[in-house]
Simulated assay, not measured.
Amino acid sequence: MKVHILDDWFDTLRTLPSFAALDGHEVTVWTDHVTETSTLADRLKDAEAICLFRERTAITADLLARLPKLRLISQRSVYPHVDVAACTAHGVVFCSNMGKQGPSVAAAELTFALILASARQIPQQMASLRAGTWQMGVGQSLCGRRLGLYGYGRIGKAVARYAEAFRMEVVWWSSETGRARAVADGAQVAESRDAFFVEADFVSVHVRLKPETQGIITLDDLLSMKPTASFVNTSRAGLVEEGALMAALEAGRPGRLALDVFEKEPITDPDDPLVNHPAVIATPHIGFVTEDELNSQFAEIYEQIVAYAAGAPVNVINPEVLGAAEAE
């Protein structure tokens, strides 16, 4: 098959062990990001299969209408960027592994790195040193401080294990069912949602973005936090009420933000007010961007291509396409 891989910005995937799964296929890797539909359609005009790199490129009805040779789209995890109905209408099989994968160690590690960086003001201290002014302030020790984890899932649990190694107090909040699971596991759940935010020294959110979780973290939640506290988000920007982060910064509650995700990505404005705010530590959505994580994720994506080519597709989101093909 003619397989195209989109948005591999650093040409990493072909260097990883999992890439060997595509031996025997004609593979094209695109290392830049294109949003204009006609340009993208021209690039992919001969593609029979497309591998998506997370949610970097939207698959729209307009684009699919211009790709008559396309038979398969393969990716991993959630798919708000893919028009599944349009895939079905154009006879394109859409595969995405939605199974219970192990926790993203990379995302959990970055989360805790941001917690440490915020507590010890590492970027600000580095800037002060480079400016010749030596120290710029006094940081916080993590030992004995309260970490509030919002969302009782796999990544949050991994972060909790790191926090416990630092002898932090870990307190949870989640949906009603999530809180019930936490209690059953013997974890400490906050007395109330309000108490969760008010009493935490650090709050980190680990919730999957869905229509019902859009804006789940409100401005009032942030304003209730201590002026000495930090809010960390390595999940999705849409989990936070639009505009709430800048409003919270202006109010000084919480005192610091540590962010890996943003409302509009990528951010290319060097003067972006959120990224440049002195109380913000920001990274460019690198929570999953490690060689190890990409190798694991794309092994699953390639497996779906190999299975389709062998006539036994797996993880099909729109199986009605397969039924239509058999009817023909």
Rank of each mutant, 00 (worst) to 15 (best):
V306E: 11
D292N: 11
A184Q: 09
G178P: 01
A282E: 07
L209T: 03
L6D: 02
P319Y: 02
H4I: 02
V78D: 12
A187K: 15
G323K: 10
S18Y: 00
T12L: 15
G323E: 14
V27C: 03
S224E: 03
V93N: 00
A229Q: 04
A307N: 02
V29Q: 06
R253A: 08
Q125S: 12
I301D: 00
D260Y: 00
R167H: 14
V183F: 05
F196L: 11
A182P: 08
R154L: 05
I267W: 07
T57A: 09
N315Q: 15
Q124I: 04
Q214C: 14
V314I: 15
K264M: 12
K157A: 12
F298P: 06
K45N: 13
H206Y: 07
A61C: 03
A327Y: 13
H206D: 07
H4W: 13
A237L: 04
L72V: 06
R145S: 10
N233T: 06
L44K: 09
I115V: 14
L70N: 06
R181W: 08
L63W: 06
R167M: 07
G151S: 05
E26R: 12
L259K: 10
E191D: 15
P17G: 02
S77L: 06
L274I: 14
F53V: 03
F231V: 03
L249P: 05
V207P: 12
S18Q: 03
D260A: 10
L129H: 08
L114F: 00
K100Q: 13
D194V: 14
P103A: 15
I216W: 00
D292C: 00
M168V: 03
E109G: 02
D260W: 02
V171I: 08
Y308G: 01
A182H: 08
Y162F: 14
I122H: 02
L322A: 14
G287P: 06
N233V: 07
T133F: 12
E26P: 07
D23R: 07
L114R: 02
